[in-house]
Simulated assay, not measured.
Amino acid sequence: MNPEKLHFIVIDDSKLDCFIAEKIIQNTGRNESINTFQLVTDALNYIKGLSNHNGKTIVFVDIQMPVMNGFDFVESFEQLPLDAKSHYVIYMLSSSINENDIAKVRGYSSVKQFLNKPLTGKTMATVLEDN
């Protein structure tokens, strides 16, 4: 049986981190689609614009970004209707292991887990096992 293909969204202000994440996701062979965004607002508009969403989407969002950060994204995402949110699994990424950030991440019902940056093949394998 072939594993289910998944949709992926990467939100990170770093072009390099978006590129690395995209390559790691592609190497899994599990991607139906990959969309990268450097601005939270662009990602939110994209998600809001998907009315006939099929399948599950894994979202990787960086915590530290200018203008709107990862927490701003999650707070806006959690305002979406339940049927829209039910297709998404959110993982928050950060290069700094800040206990306050980790504790804050646990407070969001729509965030599955906190992950260290950069995204690696090993981390991706763990994410795919959970989904």
Rank of each mutant, 00 (worst) to 15 (best):
I63R: 02
N100F: 11
M92K: 04
D130H: 05
T123C: 07
K85M: 14
F114A: 10
N54Y: 14
Y88R: 01
G29Q: 05
S33A: 15
V40R: 03
L6M: 13
A21V: 00
H53N: 08
I63D: 06
L82H: 06
I24G: 09
F71P: 01
V67L: 07
V67N: 09
K117W: 06
S94A: 07
I9H: 00
D101R: 11
T126S: 09
F73Q: 02
D62Q: 06
K23V: 04
A43Q: 09
G49E: 07
D42Q: 14
G70K: 10
L16D: 13
K122Q: 11
N69D: 15
D72R: 08
E129V: 09
S76T: 04
T36C: 12
V61C: 15
D17H: 10
D12R: 04
Y46H: 15
E99V: 14
T28C: 00
L6D: 03
M68I: 03
I24F: 10
T28V: 02
I11M: 05
K122F: 02
L119P: 11
T28W: 00
S86C: 12
Q64L: 07
K23H: 08
G49Q: 11
H53P: 02
D17E: 14
Q113P: 01
E99L: 13
L80H: 03
P3Q: 12
S109A: 15
L16E: 15
Y88T: 03
S110V: 11
S14Q: 08
V111L: 10
Q79L: 07
V89L: 13
N98P: 05
K5R: 14
V74N: 02
M124I: 02
E4S: 09
E32R: 15
D101Q: 12
E32A: 14
I90S: 02
V127Q: 03
F19Y: 13
P118D: 10
F71Y: 05
I11C: 07
I20G: 01
A84H: 11
F60Q: 03
S33C: 09
H53F: 12
L93E: 08
P118E: 11
L6V: 03
N100E: 14
K56S: 07
M68V: 03
T120I: 06
V111R: 10
P81Y: 05
L50M: 06
I25Q: 04
E78M: 04
S14Y: 05
V67Q: 10
I63V: 11
L128P: 03
S14P: 04
F8N: 00
M1C: 07
L115H: 01
E78I: 02
I47E: 03
M65D: 06
M68A: 08
N116W: 01
M65L: 06
D101S: 14
S76Q: 13
L44R: 00
D17W: 03
I9D: 02
D101G: 09
V89P: 00
D17T: 08
Q79I: 02
I25V: 12
M1Q: 10
L44E: 05
F19P: 01
T120R: 00
N116P: 01
N69R: 07
V127C: 01
L16Y: 15
M68R: 07
Y46Q: 05
D101A: 11
I63M: 04
I11N: 11
N98Y: 03
S14I: 11
L93S: 05
K56W: 01
N54H: 13
N54S: 15
Q113E: 15
D72T: 08
G107W: 05
V105I: 12
F37P: 01
K112Y: 14
S96I: 12
S96H: 07
Q38K: 14
G121V: 06
P81D: 14
N2W: 06
